[in-house]
Design a binder for these strands. Structure first.
Length: 429
RNA sequence: GGAGAGGUGGCCGAGUGGUCGAAGGCGCUGGACUGGAAUUCCAGUAAUACCCACAAGGUAUUCGUGGGUUCGAAUCCCACCCUCUCCGCCA
């Protein structure tokens, strides 16, 4: 959520910034609505003030044993006038809230211009691409060769965009998640968290998935509307919301959290995209990193966070590049995002494996995540960041494709071997 | 799932219709005292929104949430949520 004060004081500036991400802000609608809201609120406050003072007078008169009938006559119509005003105010307020909740975050000044992914800017590359003396196979062929991917069973059980992993491939998947968690906890100073995979509408509103992107989520109906729960699309949701409705002392920050969770996405609107293999699934595992920081620290934290995610790929000996997303490609809640793209020999392309974002105060305002600024003594929104560290399914794809050998076997990166009982190579079944 | 108890400010805890945003205590902050500290004493100590210059000042809202009764609700009524205890079930 944007700071409504900024919207009031500099609407043109806000509109210009949002235009950089291709979003058109209807200024006229906002100003009209806001003016009507202000008028209604002032009127309602005045009516309530009148009610309070008159009621107090009645109480005092009663205490003195005076006749209160004339006083009561004066408040006769007050109740209905107040009720009418309150209803009007409430409907204006909810209209305004909805408008505000649907506005994306402002983008940082350093975000490159552009309308779509083609305008993203490569920041750096890391790692040598292996030169293969045989034709590269994709992860589906490799995993099936290892006897570890059962697409037929998955579609029989659950339909499209699901996978069943077995044997050494399932173990490799588990090893990857374990390795990532350990790296972030032991070397990068994160606190491990285990969190709910089902969350409420309110929680998803806090991080920005709702109200706008409900079609991307899996919802569990249950009986009543207030009992509804959603499967998390990323651990960013529960992790970041841990800071919601809290006021941190300065000394408590920064907070660095890591969790390994499954993620569930409906992938509505991605029909025909990445239909083969594990790249785009309704269910996938991810190790997620979240920072809760003081505002003045958030851009340094974004660099740290990105380097922590990159470290995973470096230790796995996977070539990757870092890309700064342009205004048109950046996410709803983010002010600035770096994507990490890993090299996939099977596709001869770099593919996204991590996305690291600084959401500044956007999520914090939605969920009321604050800290007490010692300089002002007041509670102020914190800044929140999140990044994949990294997507486990896609890391599995990358390890299989980059480690593949001519004979169909796969070399296991050294850092994963301790998690696999010392096995250094997966061999075809 | 059944029975019972309970949800008040950062924490504990009083408060059953009027001057209650709410006693008292703890904690915290500032001051006095001290060479320094402890003790003691004094004072202060919520959030949000609005008016306004995001100042001062003022107004409104907030005692789990939502609704109702009333001129007036922390206090009365209804529904829901959550927590705790016991029983059942279960990983």
């Amino acid at each position: 959520m944007l700071d409504i004060r900024m919207l009031r004081s500099d609407p043109q500036g806000v509109a210009a910034n949002l235009a950089r991400r291709g979003f058109t802000l209807d200024l006229a609608q906002f100003t009209t609505l806001e003016a009507r809201r202000k008028e209604a609120q002032v009127a309602v406050d005045a009516l309530r003030n009148e009610r309070n003072t008159r009621s107090k007078a009645i109480g005092q008169a009663k205490a003195k044993g005076q006749d209160v009938a004339p006083l009561l006559a004066k408040v006769e119509t007050l109740g209905s006038r107040l009720e009418q005003g309150e209803q009007g105010l409430a409907s204006l307020q909810s209209e305004l809230d909805r408008l505000l909740l649907d506005l994306p975050n402002l983008v940082h000044e350093s975000v490159p211009p552009g309308r779509d992914a083609s305008a993203n800017v490569e920041v750096r590359r890391h790692g040598e691409l292996r030169r293969l003396d045989f034709e590269a196979r994709d992860h589906v062929a490799i995993a099936e060769g290892l006897g570890g991917l059962d697409a037929a069973s998955a579609s029989r059980l659950s339909g499209t965009r699901f996978a069943v992993l077995t044997g050494p491939v399932a173990a490799l998947h588990r090893a990857l998640a374990q390795f990532m968690l350990d790296l972030h906890v032991r070397e990068h100073g994160y606190r491990e968290a285990w969190v709910p995979y089902l969350v409420t509408r309110r929680t998803l509103t806090g991080t920005g998935q709702l109200p706008k992107f409900e079609q991307d989520l899996f919802k569990l109906a249950r009986d009543a509307a207030d009992g509804e729960l959603f499967l998390i699309p990323t651990a960013e949701v529960p992790l970041t919301n841990l800071a919601g409705d809290r006021i941190f002392e300065a000394a408590e920050l920064p907070l660095r959290l890591v969790a390994h969770t499954p993620c569930f996405r409906s992938e509505a609107g991605s029909y025909g995209k990445d239909t083969r293999g594990l790249i785009r699934q309704h269910q996938f595992d991810k190790v997620e990193l979240v920072h809760i920081v003081r505002p003045q620290d958030s851009y340094a934290a974004l660099e740290d966070l990105t380097s922590h995610a990159a470290r995973v790929l470096e230790r796995l000996e996977l070539p990757y590049r870092v890309v700064a997303l342009c205004g048109g490609d950046i996410g709803f809640a983010s002010a600035k995002t770096y994507d990490l793209e890993v090299w996939l020999p099977g596709q001869a392309a770099y593919r996204e494996i991590s996305s690291c974002s600084n959401c500044e105060a956007f999520q914090a305002r939605r969920m009321l995540a604050r800290w007490r600024n010692p300089e002002t003594g007041k509670p102020e929104p914190v800044h929140t960041l999140n990044g994949s560290g990294v997507a486990v399914g896609r890391a599995l794809v990358a390890v299989l494709e980059n480690g593949q050998q001519a004979d169909g076997s796969v070399v296991v990166p050294g850092v994963l071997r301790p998690y696999l009982g010392g096995v250094d190579r997966l061999k075809p079944a």
